[in-house]
Design a protein around this nucleic acid. Structure first.
Length: 489
RNA sequence: GGCGCCGUACCCAAGUGGCUAAGGGGGAGGUCUGCAAAACCUCUAUUCGCCGGUUCGAAUCCGGCCGGCGCCUCCA
């Protein structure tokens, strides 16, 4: 089955055909860096991380660009109000670029913690002022924009396709306008490409229209086309950006180049907390840093990927606790596998108890269907049940077979979903832990002597106390083993 | 007011015209165990918000209603 993607532009699932064979050019709207990233960012970027990882798994050469917005987004009204970064800078008495830099790194740190692979290019808006001015000049020259008092606006009535992504019509936009009409605009839906800097405005650049700063949609058009070409494969972002942000991007880009801008538009759904939207300006958001105090990165990743990217995800402690149990179960199985791999050998006339390739196929079918990660995860659980059953019942284990299964976990659960760490600890003989392990072994030996003497109360106390510090004893007919409780990666 | 999405078991969540409605969590029982833990096995929705309609056949398509959410203002 071919890879299909739900395209917001056509509202249908469409087979993915790259513009250049074997390559994927993808742009995803990045964060505005004026605060610590929250779990909504986590959902968005983990989802697209899985998309990019899957393309790479399929063998595509991917060029993944994600902007860092360090200027330009305003606090309230489209054209009035104060730049969010400037606001933060004033509140914290910092240079705006200090604010942007600080939160850019906060973002990178959190993404790394969540196992999100860095985009190939993370262009900053302030680093592309010249290119943005050039694009605005083209739009003016082609008659799609007009200047008033050092402000440049895009004339939406000139672009006949305006509304094709979001399904909106200009007259409807007028009727529903909640914002006071800016008298400088010819049409209420016109949007700013360049804003004149008032005296005292800290972030300002010279331009043909005087000192000012770019509007909020122009950076994405500029930077995506600069690095990916005038037409590229995929543009992703949050569903709330369909209108106006992405609609405006299309208007700017296609007006300037006369070519289709993006072939597949992908939009991920929102995170809600207790059923209501989480937004930066609502102040009810949970930062990734807060979430990571309570849950492991793998739990958060698993939680995000266990629902589809186009579904809304409700964040609650119950759901996260269930997710934690789920991912622990998956990781426990992989650990069992790694342990078994240690004592496995060659079994003559071996008959495979199940077909690993069958599971790979099912996994790929799920991912090919618009990146259906919940279904893909379900396949991994089905595989786990088969594997555990084999590990339990087989008296002699066939090493090549276990290795094949291990590769499957590493590729599907590891490389693609980022749920299974490459260096998963198998709780045996790590050098650093050598002496600790000897001590545990001594404790176990003594406890087993107690058990032989039927002094179970004391034996259980030893097990309970060890359990309190995260060492779990497992009594089997062949003897006692132990493992460290999974707390991190 | 306009546009759009969603409602599947106790919870989370796939499935969107036809074999037994995935998977995870939780719960019940069992194998194993001195007891546990882990793992495995069995059970836990004759039914998919409600009401009509289309169809040989619908959770899936159409219409209406009820409920929840999002966008139309910066937001992932």
């Amino acid at each position: 089955m071919a890879l299909v993607i739900y395209n917001t532009l056509t509202r249908k699932k469409e087979e993915f055909v790259p513009l250049k064979p074997g390559r994927v050019h993808i742009y995803v709207c990045g964060p505005t860096v004026y605060g610590h990233p929250h779990i909504g960012h986590a959902k968005s970027y983990i989802s697209f991380d899985a998309v990019v990882r899957y393309f790479r798994y399929l063998g595509y050469r991917v060029k993944y660009v994600q902007n860092i917005t360090d200027v330009g987004h305003l606090t309230d009204d489209a054209d009035e109000g104060e730049d969010k970064i400037l606001k933060k800078a004033r509140e914290e008495k910092l240079d705006p670029m200090q604010v942007a830099e600080y939160y850019t790194w906060s973002y990178f740190d959190d993404m790394q913690a969540l196992g999100v692979i860095r985009p190939d290019i993370s262009p900053r808006a302030t680093g592309h002022i010249i290119e943005q001015i050039e694009l605005i000049k083209v739009l003016l020259k082609k008659g799609y924009a007009y200047e008033v008092n050092g402000n440049v606006y895009y004339d939406v009535t000139k672009f006949k396709d305006y509304g094709k992504l979001s399904g909106r019509k200009l007259d409807e936009l007028m009727a529903g306008a909640r914002v006071e009409v800016n008298p400088e605009k010819r049409h209420p839906a016109d949007f700013a490409l360049w804003k004149r800097a008032e005296p005292g405005h800290l972030m300002r650049w010279p331009s043909p229209w005087g000192e000012g700063y770019p509007g909020w949609h122009i950076e994405c058009s500029t930077m995506s086309m600069k690095y990916l070409g005038e037409t590229f494969d995929i543009h992703g972002g949050g569903i709330e950006n369909v209108f106006p942000h992405h609609e405006c991007e299309i208007a700017q880009s296609e007006a300037a180049t006369g070519k289709p801008f993006v072939r597949y538009w992908m939009h991920n759904n929102m995170v809600t907390v207790n059923g209501t939207k989480m937004g930066k300006s609502l102040g009810n958001f949970i930062t990734i840093k807060e979430a990571l105090k309570k849950y492991t990165p793998h739990t958060l990743r698993y939680f995000v990927l266990s629902s589809h990217y186009r579904s809304a995800l409700d964040f609650s402690d119950e759901a996260l606790t269930a997710a934690e149990k789920g991912i622990d179960k998956l990781l426990a199985t992989v650990k069992n596998l790694l342990k078994a791999l240690g004592n496995a050998g060659e079994v003559s006339d071996f008959t495979p108890p199940f077909s690993p390739e069958e599971f790979r196929k099912r996994f790929e079918e799920a991912m090919n269907d618009d990146f259906n990660t919940p279904r893909a995860i379900a396949v991994l659980f089905d595989l786990s049940r088969e594997l555990n059953a084999y590990l339990n019942r087989a008296e002699a284990l066939h090493k090549p077979f276990l290795e094949e299964v291990n590769v499957l976990y590493q590729q599907l659960g590891g490389e693609v979903l980022g749920l299974i760490p490459k260096d998963l600890k198998v709780d045996t003989g790590a050098e650093l832990q050598g002496s600790i392990e000897k001590i545990i072994q001594i404790t176990i030996d003594i406890r087993n002597e107690l058990r032989k003497e039927k002094m179970f109360k004391l034996a259980d106390r030893i097990r309970d106390r060890l359990s309190e510090i995260g060492i779990i004893l497992i009594d089997k007919p062949e003897g006692t083993t132990y493992e460290f409780k999974e707390t991190e990666s």
